[in-house]
Design a protein around this nucleic acid. Structure first.
Length: 495
RNA sequence: GGCCCUAUGGUCAAGCGGUCAAGACGCCGCCCUCUCAAGGCGGAAUCAGGAGUUCGAUUCUCCUUAGGGUCACCA
């Protein structure tokens, strides 16, 4: 289908706290739908629910979009030809539209109290009763009745009259044709008693006024889309293209799945960053939750996504958020980082371990760059450089290295003096020295490497082997740790 | 419960009437190797079930089953 008009999509979050991963992914797809066709991506803040506003969350939205590279063309901060872009600042726009529909007989005043609505809901737990929620009690009030109640300041809402029969059909770009019976549709509230529009209403008005061509959102809106369309039709406006996205699911403890939410763990963008995931990895991973490029590329920048994106690549079935795969993406991004950038990223960690100032932190960084999947793993991985942990001499026994505690003790004792007199403490020098020792003694390299590496790290495994660790730790610290190992081994064996 | 949607390995998924049913994560094995990683190679594992349509169904239709979403003066 050819669109003569330029594509315009919008991200319309409510400032109610953190940036949920599902929202971010929606924003990404909205961005991609527009940018892949040279369209415009608009940011609009939907703050019609005064009760749920959270201080500072608008800034979170700005910052997150910026962090992941989703730049908008119009929005509260940069303006545009369709402002204002914050719904609370548009408050006066909506009411006239609602009243227009009342005048045209397509909407009506409703004076029902919350108490009445609540009792209605409780009473209709009966299965075979009408499905359409509200019982349309005020739909046919006489005009004089309405006037007296308004005059006496009775609070009211404005509801839209839904057709009592027939059905509504629309075509979604990813789910195809969907039909719903009109008698399933409630007489929806357009204007709340506080004068603010409901989300649905404001959404339609703004999307129309802002010339939005493609409404991209989660598939949880699929079943309420007919209501939107009835609104567009009531006004005689052109209905936008719909692009509903498959839901992102989280795995529950019992193995079932449901819409990704807090109980599934870190689901906010900031949470994930705090957990040591790179921004690029996060956006890359969630891009693939429900979309697959034609060439099956996995590692992609937002820039790459723009050129590869096609709506036809969006899938219909929900996708389970997989932290393992996210970790993999993250480790790929970490490995691809330029050395300097990686050092800078983990600088605090490196400094906390280098209290003496003597360690070669650049080399430590190099060693761990291929060994971590999350930045948060760094402290534990490098802490031994600063403080040799308490360890058991059992560590010196290694079947594959063919080492025992006795042999370890023997070789450590034997090599220590000449090690102390080794002047050139470069990697190659240390390496050659150890190898020649093994050669001379006619033992496997591992039989000398393993005891040293163990003595230096006090751990069953470490980033880097004996040579690297000795080099980083320096001669005096290396010797000190080997001496300690000798004492430990000696004590254990003679016991 | 009503309505709507979905259904390829454990997970993300390619496929769009004829394929030995891609690839990735994870898992397992081997190689490399001074530990652990990284890297290389290989392996196990999928079309929910049943009717049709068709010469032929993973692919089209229907039913069943399972899962999900939605039923607010929330967005």
């Amino acid at each position: 289908m050819i669109h003569p008009k330029q594509i315009r999509t919008r991200f319309a979050p409510s400032p109610t706290g953190m940036m949920h991963i599902g929202n971010l992914r929606t924003a990404l797809y909205e961005f991609l739908v527009a940018r892949s066709e040279n369209g415009k991506f608009i940011l609009r803040i939907e703050d019609t629910d005064r009760g749920r506003l959270v201080e500072g969350s608008v800034d979170v939205i700005f910052r997150t979009l910026k962090d992941v590279g989703l730049s908008h063309d119009e929005g509260p901060d940069i303006g545009g030809g369709f402002g204002p872009y914050i719904q609370s600042m548009r408050k006066d726009i909506y009411a006239p539209y609602a009243h227009q529909l009342v005048k045209e007989g397509k909407a009506y005043y409703c004076f029902c109290t919350r108490e009445r609505l609540d009792s209605l809901r409780n009473a209709s737990s009966d299965p075979d009763i009408s499905n359409a929620g509200y019982d349309r009690h005020c739909r046919n009030l006489t005009s004089s009745d309405i006037q007296t109640r308004i005059d006496s300041c009775e609070p009211f809402v404005i509801r839209q009259k839904m057709p009592l029969s027939g059905h509504t059909t629309f075509t979604d770009a990813v789910f195809g044709e969907i039909t719903v019976d009109n008698n399933e549709l409630e007489d929806q509230i357009l204007l709340k008693s506080d004068g603010f529009p409901t989300y649905n209403f404001a959404n339609v008005i703004d999307d129309h006024l802002m010339d939005i061509t493609h409404v991209v959102r989660g598939s949880e809106y699929l079943s309420s889309t007919p209501k939107y369309n009835l609104l567009y039709e009531a006004f005689g406006w052109e209905i936008p293209e719909y692009v509903h996205l498959p839901l992102i699911m989280g795995r529950n403890e019992d193995g079932s799945v449901s819409k990704l939410s807090k109980r599934h763990g870190a689901t906010g963008f900031d949470d994930l960053v705090r957990d040591g995931y790179l921004k690029e990895a996060i956006i890359n991973y969630i891009a693939l939750l429900g979309w697959c490029p034609a060439d099956n590329t996995e590692i992609m920048s937002v820039r790459d996504m723009i050129s590869k994106f096609r709506i036809s690549g969006i899938s219909k079935s929900p996708a389970v958020f997989d932290y393992d795969k996210l970790r993999w993406f993250n480790s790929e991004y970490i490995k691809a980082l330029p050395h300097e950038d990686f050092c800078e990223m983990i600088r605090n960690y490196l400094e906390s371990v280098n209290t003496s100032g003597a360690l070669n932190t650049s080399m430590i960084a190099e060693l761990i760059q291929t060994r971590i999947s999350q930045l948060t793993e760094v402290p534990e991985m490098i802490s031994f450089f600063r403080d040799l942990p308490e360890y058991s001499t059992d560590l010196f026994e290694h079947k594959k290295m063919k080492t025992t505690q006795q042999l370890s003790l023997l070789h450590l004792q034997e090599i220590l003096p000449s090690l102390e007199s080794l002047n050139d403490w470069s990697l190659t020098s240390i390496h050659d020295f150890l190898i020649s020792y093994a050669l001379k003694k006619e033992i496997k390299n591992g039989q000398i490497m393993w005891p040293i590496r163990t003595a230096l790290s006090g751990q069953p495994s470490s980033p880097g082997g004996a040579v690297e660790l000795m080099h980083i730790l320096g001669k005096s610290e290396s010797v000190r740790r080997i001496e300690k190992a000798i004492i430990l081994l000696d004590n254990t064996i003679t016991e």
